[in-house]
Write a protein that binds this DNA or RNA. Structure first.
Length: 665
DNA sequence: ATCCCTCGAGGTCA
DNA sequence: CTCGAGGGAT
């Protein structure tokens, strides 16, 4: 092969790629096919052949390489350098007006220029481009870290693998599926005898979580981009930003508008609420942002959401159905919760068959009877909720419901402690309660023992292998494999998972023990303060109450748990088995401030400068005494000095003590 | 009074 | 994935 030949091939390949990218864009983003499909396929085949002949000319951003690579064994997580926060919700005009009032107060008194766009009912994702090349993409996750779904995102034809400019940029948007495409997909599945999908949103979510990108490629995923993460574009307004994204050939929703003042926003909301069924995709509301990026920055964010934006949510669909029966569940705290079993109805795209009745006061207040016809809706489009009874529909066959006086599991008497809404089973050896405790102990946020879900917990308990969480650590694979429907392989895996869990930090153990009122937050606080379980055990209520955010109730609950007769044997078993009872001083998993430099100005309420500095360094960050371009955050306390102005000059992010506290915790 | 945590809830898809 | 009631802390 001569050099000239290679050069010729290179030129041809580049031209082909550019051409295909153009047609792709016209077809998938602009919805205006410029050429017939056969011609497009022909070009693709030609490119594929050329790339096969000249492997040295392969390129990861070639249109032939959208579906590449192997199925992943598992997803890895990616950190969002700038958190992907959710939005606060507004459910009425009043709540929008309240939002407007807050914004005007913070930004000055004029009518605010708002940027309104449709809220897509899909999944938020982040796309990273380096020098204009698509390198990484992830889900929103908890807002701070998401899953790396690069391979799947690459299969979405609307996402350019190369931008029209060589920019470093993180764009954020929503992946969704058109209603029509969803119907076609379901018809295909019907033909293939596969189970049908329930709605576009969950299908999109499931598709992005496919480990094999070829499966994701077969789903009709689409995307609209609407925001930025890290970037260095210079822009002044939200609407300008979207135009800029369009120029980069990123797909952007055209149904957007600038509205001057909140009345105009409300009209926009109503207009699109009316037009909702006409849209080719599903929307669940309107996103309202301040258009000025300058003002956005000025208003900043709270821990969970920006102050300069709100999501107006359309009122949820309501339907009538019948209560067939009322069931009671026993929770891991002994709380007995009634649940209504409903005649199945379809609501917001899913089938609804159950709804929580919370407690007996709820039932009494709504005057709910078995057999009643009730109005149901999905709160936030997710959780089924009973709104009210239609009394006119009563036939006289309805039955009054009484919460059971005896625990459905162990028959011991249920009681309602004064001041509590829940009726509880107080029998510490109630089977339902013990199984729930096992499940909680093994759950992901607690000891994270994979394979010990409700079914397995029930199995090992009912076969007498495990009576409390301490017994878990004495299980043997052989015992498990003898249980019905448990294979040798899964038995071994479970034993391994149990073994691994011995190394968990104390906070997970504390949380897992299921001490009343001690959730993740309190468990962590206690673990970090006392370091070992022994030292926590020596603490009295006064010492605990002295801690911020631990009051008398939590303190009492902790002390009584640790000293009650039932606890000791469990802790002995855990200790004997070699379960870790200490909290590691520096947790590398949370060393999330690596490479970040902090500067303080003004006095902090909760920490001395030294303490604050120690916390930052503990997490891998650095503290400096003067502001420079390299400073990542200025933490301002009471009466900040000249550093504040300097930080504004240099565009250093300014955070309050509360935000700082979150970062170091 | 307010903010935020705890706890229990449902449905879908992997 | 997400909500809502209850309740603790301040």
């Amino acid at each position: 092969m001569t050099g000239a030949e290679l050069e010729k091939a290179r030129a041809e390949i580049l031209a082909l790629r550019r051409e295909i990218d153009k047609y792709n864009y016209q077809y998938h983003v602009m919805d205006q096919p410029l050429i017939v499909d056969q011609l497009f396929d022909h070009l693709m085949r030609k490119l594929q052949e050329l790339e096969k002949t000249y492997p040295e000319l392969q390129d990861p951003d070639s249109p032939t390489r959208r579906v590449g690579g192997e199925a992943l064994p598992t997803f890895t997580t990616l950190e969002h350098r700038i958190p992907m926060l959710g939005l606060e919700n507004a459910f009425s005009e009043t709540e929008l007006t309240d939002f407007d009032a807050r914004v005007r107060k913070l930004a000055g008194n004029d009518a605010v220029e708002y940027f309104c766009e449709l809220k897509m009912d899909g999944l938020a994702v982040s796309l990273q481009y380096e020098h204009g090349l698509f390198t990484r993409g992830s889900t929103r996750g908890d807002g701070y870290r998401g899953e790396d779904i690069t391979q799947n995102l690459r299969t979405i034809r609307q996402i350019p693998l190369r931008l029209t400019e060589p920019l470093d940029l993180e764009v954020r948007g929503e992946v969704y599926i058109n209603r029509k495409d969803f119907d076609i997909l379901n018809r295909q599945r019907e033909d293939q005898g596969l189970p049908l999908f329930a709605n576009p949103r969950n299908t999109a979510a499931g598709s992005l979580r496919q480990l094999d990108p070829r499966l994701a490629a077969a789903r009709p995923l689409r995307i609209f981009l609407y925001g930025l993460g890290e970037h260095n574009l210079s822009l002044t307004g939200q609407s300008e930003l979207l135009v800029r994204l369009e120029k980069l050939r990123l797909p952007v929703n055209p149904n957007r508008e600038i509205c001057l003042g909140i009345e105009a926003v409300w009209q926009y909301c109503q207009k699109w609420q009316g037009n909702r069924p006409k849209l080719p995709y599903e929307t669940d509301g309107i996103v309202v942002k301040m258009n000025s990026l300058e003002l956005q920055k000025q208003l900043g964010s709270t821990a969970r959401s920006p102050r300069w934006a709100i999501a107006y949510k359309y009122p949820p669909e309501e339907k009538m159905t019948k209560i067939l029966e009322i069931q009671v569940n026993v929770g891991s705290t002994g709380a007995i919760t009634p649940v209504a079993l409903l005649e199945p109805i379809s609501l917001s795209g899913t089938s609804v068959q159950r709804a929580s009745l919370h407690n007996e006061d709820f039932i009494a207040e709504k005057e709910i009877m078995i057999g009643d016809t009730v109005v149901v809706r999905k709160a936030g489009e997710i959780i089924p909720e009973i709104l009210r009874v239609i009394r006119e529909k009563r036939t006289g066959d309805e039955e009054v419901y009484m919460m059971p006086r005896q625990c459905p599991s162990c028959r011991s008497e249920t009681v309602r402690l004064s001041g509590e809404a829940a009726r509880r089973c107080l029998n510490p050896s109630c089977p339902a309660l013990l199984v729930e405790k096992l499940v909680h102990f093994a759950s992901r946020r607690a000891m994270d023992i994979e394979g010990m879900g409700p079914a397995m917990a029930e199995l090992v308990y009912s076969h007498g292998l495990v009576h409390d969480v301490g017994d878990l650590f004495y299980l043997e694979a052989i015992q498990l494999a003898e249980l019905p429907r448990v294979a040798a392989k899964s038995a071994e895996k479970l034993i391994e998972a149990i073994e691994r869990s011995k190394n968990n930090p104390l906070r997970r153990l504390l949380f897992g023990l299921g001490i009343r009122l001690v959730g993740e937050k309190a468990a962590r606080l206690l673990a970090e303060r006392f370091i070992t379980l022994e030292r926590l055990g020596q603490a009295g209520t006064e010492e605990l109450t002295a801690l911020a955010e631990i009051g008398p109730k939590i303190a009492e609950s902790v002390v009584s748990f640790l000293h009650t007769a039932e606890t000791k044997p469990v802790l002995d078993k855990l200790r004997e088995a070699g379960v870790n009872f200490t909290e590691p001083a520096v947790c590398t998993a949370t060393a999330n401030l690596a490479g970040k430099t902090f500067v303080f100005s003004g006095s902090l309420e909760q920490y001395s400068r030294d303490e604050a500095a120690a916390r930052v360094e503990n997490k891998g960050g650095k503290v400096s005494s003067s502001i420079s371009r390299n400073t990542n955050y200025l933490v301002v306390g009471d009466e900040p000095g000249s550093k504040l102005a300097r930080a504004r000059e240099l565009d250093v992010e300014i955070i309050k003590e509360s935000r700082f506290k979150e970062m170091i915790e």
